[in-house]
Design a protein around this nucleic acid. Structure first.
Lengths: 107, 107
DNA sequence: ATATAAACACCCCTATCGGGACACTTAATA
DNA sequence: TATTAAGTGTCCCGATAGGGGTGTTTATAT
């Protein structure tokens, strides 16, 4: 009922986790200390650094916040840089997307 | 037992959610279709676009993957751009961080 | 070399989340 | 304008993940 996670997705999350670990060590913060500052438990910090797929997004965001890097999350899919999507101008962006026939959408 | 989410964190996640919604509409994909392509349920897509704090990270990653933007997640905390942390060279980065006295770490 | 705390690996329990269903509103086509 | 599907809100239930504990390994500061 929940398809397997695509490999690229798995890899990206794992890398994010180890980058968090890296950023933490660079700042001389222990896992326990990071947990405290984030408002999370030690086990959650571990799971996060290990790249656990099911850790809620807000924990990752909290970690970034501790590192003063919360903007990078905000600008993750920054509309300005979203070249592909820019085929359509934002002005006439539909609030709802409707497919012509039975088509369920297009890329 | 779980401190409230800092406002900046909440805002960042909300913005990410609406950016996903924007990217989706730009590509003329319905929520249902995105859900299918992501391998998630419709309700999850909705929660995600609304900025639900507790949606697991992998769902966000899956969405980015559908949009062909998975790299942006990988490079989220890219070590190269992590200026603050660069005070310490990576070569002699400790695997474990140890505080001098009872200090629980430093920023 | 030694002491010690950081990091890691489990486990359990319970709060919570994702999936699915239903009803309603409303925007986009014909 | 009429049609109809997209988007939204709410609820319930079963699955599961986070918190917290215990025990072990091991890197680092003395």
């Amino acid at each position: 009922m929940e398809p397997p996670v695509p490999l690229p997705v798995e890899q990206a999350i794992r890398k994010l986790g180890s980058d968090i670990s890296l950023a933490r060590r660079r700042r001389h913060i222990s896992q326990a200390s990071l947990a405290e500052r984030m408002g999370a438990s030690l086990s959650t910090v571990r799971r996060m650094e290990k790249g656990d797929l099911r850790v809620p997004i807000h924990f990752f965001a909290r970690a970034l916040h501790v590192f003063g890097e919360i903007q990078s999350l905000e600008n993750l899919l920054d509309t300005a840089k979203d070249d592909i999507g820019l085929t359509l101008m934002d002005e006439n962006l539909p609030k709802r997307v409707r497919s012509k026939a039975g088509t369920s959408g297009a890329l």
